[in-house]
Design a protein around this nucleic acid. Structure first.
Lengths: 342, 342
DNA sequence: ATTTCAACTGCAAACGCTTGCAGATATTGG
DNA sequence: CCAATATCTGCAAGCGTTTGCAGTTGAAAT
């Protein structure tokens, strides 16, 4: 048997009730802002609670069926500017609300993912934001109630008609590719993201559409499957550069990947952008600090987070509200890593 | 009155008990790994729980006095590579354990800080890690039990004899300053961090000690009070550069500040490092991506997080364990932003 | 075959809160 | 001044667990 953890003198609703001479249910009602409590009583209770340093016990509140004023946030990890930017947006927006954030990292470990969802939805939180879950369905199945309020970020799902926030992945990729074509590039390498994410697929589609639209033949050897990580950009670029006829530009599916590409190119001694252009996607803070400064497709990451929160709060306020999908616009940011074909 | 949230069919310990034909307390004991349960019974219960998709209700468990297997983490915000690196370390280390992380951001808003501490320590989590709390005392006072297990990161406190992890701030600053002096710099600007943090004070002391030790007169006009933010680096550098006799090197108290310094210098057209050297502190991931690559004092940020977790887990396993302070070594990383005085 | 004891299992209370319902207290009109 | 009503308050049950204590079982010892 483990050491039994003695609960020492927590100040409870009962203490506050005793101290202010009312019943504990009245205290509860005051604390929850219900009507039917005389103004003077309310004042008195509030003051006593304050004075005694009362802090509600969330677990008890939740157990009893009350609101926790917590919203859960599930992210794969924190090792990535893309995610931390969105989290930051969520955090900012939540700071204006009465809700607190509880963040869980899954490390993409499937076991934990659905466990967390269940735990959170069991009452630990009032709502849930899922950040790029690899396969949303798995998560959503774990929801104990169909109507538990949640929002999906950057991952659509076709099965459950979920409320979703994402960006114009297709259009962004199209724009970037078209921009490179306009610069005179014909052989444009593409390093894809993790194919199970639909952002990756959409960007790929955008890339192909731009090629086709400009009557450039699609060359499979120029497309490398990656996983949105720096390493895959590095190895992908290495492969592209070793082709008999290497590309004159590389479009990486995200900035992290682009950094790997930058690295690989630097190693070969080629100059950027004189010898080869590089374009990324996301515009994480690092992008403008890289050398050379990265041309990229900006996703409004902070805003994505903010919108996710707003949608969730809407849903929380009005559970009847139907699901909707908000897609924010991307924007091509031209910096120093791209130039006309030499 | 708000909409009452109906609890829909959560699978409880009772369901599992009924299904496997034992009492609910036996199920509880199986789930908590206690002895005194027949092997066959244990198996059966485990299997049934698995099959039924049972997930423990943390709130109930906590209320009843059990362990939550959650450790709380309080950080000022997520908008800072320094913090996210440490958090990442914490996260990594926790991933190997049976504990989950719950992260709260305080935005340095005092009201929330002690509220969170109370909430968490009320049983929501089994332990607590405090990341750079502006004034640790405030937090620690809020602890309902003196012996609630917690660890302070990068902030010592003299009052409560807390378990602490930090880095050799003094030595790191001393080393950086001495390095600049060795390069021939005599007028070395210093931009301080938020003075209420003792890391800021220690670094300042290290800077002064190095000057003194090398018999360079301390010049107050070369020291600017900052707050560890990029903006303060920018404005601080502007001020330093507009001195009649501007410094030939600037030591910024952290990398974020150094980025501001870089910016300000770039604007004036001065070259780095030919005209002026810049040194930072922390070595956040951005540091090696900045232009020019930043010379800086590396703190083992990820490791700091990991150590914090390890100390906390130790304490959790053995509550009798006395508090201790672990100070990790810093290391000067020379990159491209510093050079001999021209 | 009985007793004895270890090995196991179950009951019930408790954790701090919310909330339906009933009861109490003002407040008003007759 | 009383009844009727509106307004407020309190009791008690219940949320899903843990755990002390008492009870049951079964095998070994007599």
């Amino acid at each position: 048997m483990q050491t039994s953890r003695k609960k020492i003198s927590q100040i409870t609703i009962l203490d506050v009730a005793r101290e202010s001479g009312v019943s504990y249910s009245t205290v509860s009602r005051v604390l929850n802002g219900f009507d039917f409590v005389k103004g003077s009583t309310r004042e008195k209770v509030l003051k006593t609670a304050e004075r005694m340093g009362y802090v509600a016990n969330i677990q008890a509140r939740s157990l009893a069926g009350g609101k926790t004023q917590i919203i859960g946030l599930l992210v794969p990890g924190l090792d990535n500017g893309y995610i931390t930017e969105i989290v930051s947006g969520i955090d900012q927006e939540l700071a204006h609300s009465d809700y607190d954030m509880m963040l869980y990292t899954t490390h993409r470990y499937q076991g934990k993912e659905s466990l967390y969802v269940k735990t959170i939805a069991n009452g630990l939180a009032d709502g849930l934001i899922l950040l790029v879950p690899h396969n949303a369905q798995n998560y959503l199945q774990a929801l104990p109630r169909q109507d538990f309020p949640y929002v999906l970020v950057d991952q659509i799902d076709n099965m459950y008609n979920s409320t979703t926030v994402d960006a114009t992945n297709w259009q962004g990729a199209y724009d970037a590719t078209a921009y490179l074509i306009k610069l005179g590039h014909q052989r444009i390498g593409f390093i894809m993201g993790a194919p199970q994410l639909n952002s990756a697929r959409e960007r790929f589609d955008g890339y192909r559409a731009a090629l086709q639209h400009h009557r450039i033949a699609y060359d499979e050897s120029l497309v490398i499957e990656g996983d949105y990580m720096t390493k895959s950009g590095y190895s992908g670029a290495k492969r592209l550069l070793s082709l008999e006829q290497p590309p004159t530009a590389i479009f990486a599916s995200n900035d992290l990947t682009a950094f790997g590409v930058l690295d690989a190119i630097h190693e070969t001694g080629l100059r950027i952008p004189e010898d080869i252009s590089v374009v990324g996607f996301d515009d994480i803070p690092l992008a403008s600090l890289a050398y050379p400064k990265l041309t990229t497709v900006r996703q409004p990451l902070v805003q994505i987070g903010q919108v996710a929160v707003r949608l969730l709060l809407e849903k929380l306020e009005n559970p009847e509200r139907e699901a909707r999908r908000v897609t924010l616009a991307t924007e091509l940011i031209v910096r120093d890593s791209s130039a006309p074909r030499g």
